[in-house]
């Protein structure tokens, strides 16, 4: 079974700038049964609120990763909605030749904010999924710029024609799963956090296997653990196939 990992950072905190490193990263994934990876960019390289030039540098590097290994990596375009509509549209336009398959949002702003509108309009126009970093803000008091699962769920409801990926199932927690329940254009990725027990089964029960997709958050995590938490949970063969492969194929149009 060759899984698709929808959440990785082959370039992370200024490491991964050589082809050799990118090849090694892919070899590591292949050895663990990962057939392809989504490269999300070095999204924290310049802090949480990068300027237009820094955003462009991050996206150029993602494009380089994909050019080096088009057989393995699928790029997403990283955006900072707080830079405004013109900057967002310019960057999306500039990145068009790169063939990115989705848009990535981190912690520049909360997904509830009005500045999300140009991003979501671009996603709808280009038929691209939006991967939104999400984490429970119950204990982390940063909701002014850090997105809670309730905010990601609201984003998906506001833009029903855009496929939204709520990152970090475990960080979103059981409450996050319930926030995502019943939203047809929302899937949750399994990336990030320790391999906490029983939340994956809970997500499958409440969201259905079509709404959970495998992600790791490499290199912050490791594939043996992130895959092991899927394979070691109580899922049927059909559910496993959806989570590890076919949901990502559908979202990424592979």
């Amino acid at each position: 079974m060759q899984a698709i990992d929808i959440h990785t950072h082959p370039v992370f905190l200024h490491k991964g700038y050589s082809k050799k490193e990118i090849d090694e990263f892919a070899s590591y994934g292949t050895a663990h049964g990962i057939g392809r990876m989504v490269a999300l960019g070095d999204v924290l390289a310049y802090g949480r609120n990068p300027n237009a030039k820094q955003i462009a540098a991050i996206n150029d590097q993602t494009a380089q990763v994909v050019r080096w290994r088009p057989d393995y990596y699928i790029g997403f375009c990283y955006l900072n909605p707080t830079l405004g509509a013109k900057a967002v549209e310019r960057e999306v336009e500039r990145c068009a030749p790169y063939g990115f398959r989705g848009l990535k949002l981190e912690v520049a702003n909360n997904a509830r904010d009005a500045c999300m509108a140009p991003v979501m309009r671009a996603a709808e126009r280009l038929n691209l999924p939006v991967l939104q970093h999400s984490w429970s803000m119950t204990n982390i008091k940063q909701r002014s710029f850090h997105t809670d699962p309730a905010d990601t769920a609201l984003l998906a409801r506001r833009y029903p024609n855009v496929q939204v990926i709520m990152a970090h199932l475990t960080g979103c927690g059981f409450r996050g799963v319930l926030e995502a329940k019943g939203i047809e254009n929302l899937v949750v990725d399994t990336s990030g956090a320790f391999p906490e027990a029983n939340i994956l089964e809970y997500a499958i029960e409440h969201l259905g296997a079509d709404h959970v997709v495998y992600g790791s958050d490499l290199p912050i995590r490791e594939s043996s653990v992130t895959l092991g938490r899927i394979l070691g949970s109580k899922l049927s063969e059909s559910e496993l196939k959806k989570v590890l492969i076919t949901n990502a194929q559908r979202i990424l149009k592979l």
Partner: peptide, 18 residues
Amino acid sequence: SQTPFFVTRASVDKLTMA
């Protein structure tokens, strides 16, 4: 393994696949 907090297989695979 940190069972039952963690999925046991994930903790085991971390070591056995290293």
